[in-house]
Design a protein around this nucleic acid. Structure first.
Length: 149
DNA sequence: CGTTTTTGACCAGCGC
DNA sequence: GCGCTGGTCAAAAACG
């Protein structure tokens, strides 16, 4: 029964740019650590120009599921959890454990609809899935991937 | 014993 | 400039 994961896009196209207080989709802010690196000793590249580091493709979708972690075939390591405003449910941050694969994803439940899980992917996988999952494959056919714009 | 989760601290961007 | 919000790091705990 693939009814366990029911897809619906209230505002699928609005993933491009939404306000921070938009309830439709509850998009996270697009401020990933941008153009500045850590406090490493090597500063070989100095981005003097103001280049915005928003090249990571992001797309989010919502699923009606009992569990937060959807089995998409990849292996994820949780690296953070933060409580966001206007939402009693915390947001979880995951990273792909595959070496060289810097794909991240965020998972949070939607306020008001406890059964709805908002999953946001960031980046593209460099390796194929380890374990195929039928339920998620059905979702992949309906997803719209937004490349860097 | 290796890997993942948990949790607080830290940091950066944005608004006021 | 300060405070708030969100994202990541890292150390220890938890799990197999």
């Amino acid at each position: 029964m693939e009814d366990r994961y029911q897809m619906f896009f209230p505002c699928s196209s609005s993933v491009t740019k939404v306000d921070n207080s938009t309830q439709c989709g509850a998009q996270p802010t697009a401020s990933s650590s941008s153009s500045h690196q850590n406090i490493n000793t090597n500063e070989a590249e100095k981005p003097k120009s103001k280049m915005k580091k928003e090249r990571e493709s992001r797309f989010s979708f919502q699923t009606r599921s009992q569990v937060d972690i959807l089995d998409d075939g990849y292996r994820w390591r949780k690296y953070g959890q933060k409580a966001v405003k206007n939402n009693i449910f915390p947001r979880s941050y995951y990273k792909c454990t595959q070496e060289g694969c810097r794909v991240k994803k965020q998972v949070q439940r939607l306020l008001g609809d406890e059964g709805v899980v908002v999953t946001t992917y960031q980046g593209v996988h460099t390796h194929p899935v380890d374990k195929p999952s039928d339920n998620f494959h059905h979702i992949l056919t309906q997803m719209h991937i937004f490349p860097s714009f």
